[in-house]
Simulated assay, not measured.
Amino acid sequence: MFWKIVGGLLLAWVAFMVIGSVVGFLVKAVFWIAIVAGAAFLGAAAYGAIKGSGNKKQIRP
């Protein structure tokens, strides 16, 4: 009975270690994807602001 409890605790510990490492990797990956996407968005917004400054069109009713 003692070894079943020790084995269950060991199995739970290994499972938490694996789940923790996977979640940690996913959090880091999502963070860097968000950084790259934010930089691309700001670059596209700056390019559009600079490129479209001389082309002002108005909607006429």
Rank of each mutant, 00 (worst) to 15 (best):
A49D: 04
A44L: 13
L9V: 11
A44Y: 02
I35Q: 13
N55H: 13
W13P: 00
A49C: 10
L11G: 13
R60A: 09
A12W: 00
G38N: 09
L42W: 02
A39N: 02
I5Y: 05
L11A: 06
K56W: 01
I50F: 15
V6H: 01
W13K: 07
I19G: 03
I5N: 00
V6G: 00
I59S: 10
Y47G: 03
I19Q: 12
G20C: 09
Q58S: 11
A40T: 10
M17I: 10
I19H: 06
V30Y: 06
G48W: 03
G7K: 13
V14S: 03
V6W: 00
I19R: 08
A46G: 08
Q58N: 05
I59P: 00
V23G: 00
M17N: 07
F2A: 14
G24V: 01
G48E: 05
V23S: 01
K56D: 03
K57V: 15
G48V: 04
F31A: 12
I19E: 06
F2V: 12
L11M: 06
A29C: 03
M1V: 08
A49H: 07
F16G: 15
G48C: 08
K57Y: 09
I59L: 14
L10N: 02
V18L: 14
V6P: 00
F2C: 05
I5Q: 06
S53D: 06
I33S: 09
V30F: 05
A45I: 08
A12T: 15
G52W: 07
R60K: 15
G43E: 06
R60M: 10
K4G: 02
W13R: 08
K57N: 12
L42Q: 03
G7N: 13
I50A: 14
R60H: 12
A40Q: 04
R60T: 13
M17S: 12
I5D: 02
M17G: 10
G24K: 03
S21N: 13
V23Y: 05
F16I: 14
G54V: 09
I5A: 05
F2M: 08
V22H: 07
I59F: 08
A45N: 06
I35K: 12
I59C: 03
I33V: 14
V14R: 03
A34Y: 02
K28N: 09
S53N: 12
V6T: 06
K28T: 14
A45G: 01
G52E: 14
A46N: 01
W32P: 00
G24D: 10
A44P: 01
V36A: 11
G48Y: 05
G43H: 03
A45C: 01
G54R: 11
K56P: 01
W3L: 07
L11R: 09
Q58Y: 09
A37M: 07
G7A: 15
W32F: 07
Y47E: 04
A29I: 05
K56Q: 09
L10M: 09
I5F: 04
V22K: 08
V22G: 01
Y47H: 05
L9S: 12
G7H: 06
K56F: 02
W32Q: 14
A29Q: 12
I5C: 02
A15R: 06
G7F: 11
K51E: 13
G38V: 04
S53R: 15
W32N: 13
S53V: 13
G52Y: 12
L26M: 13
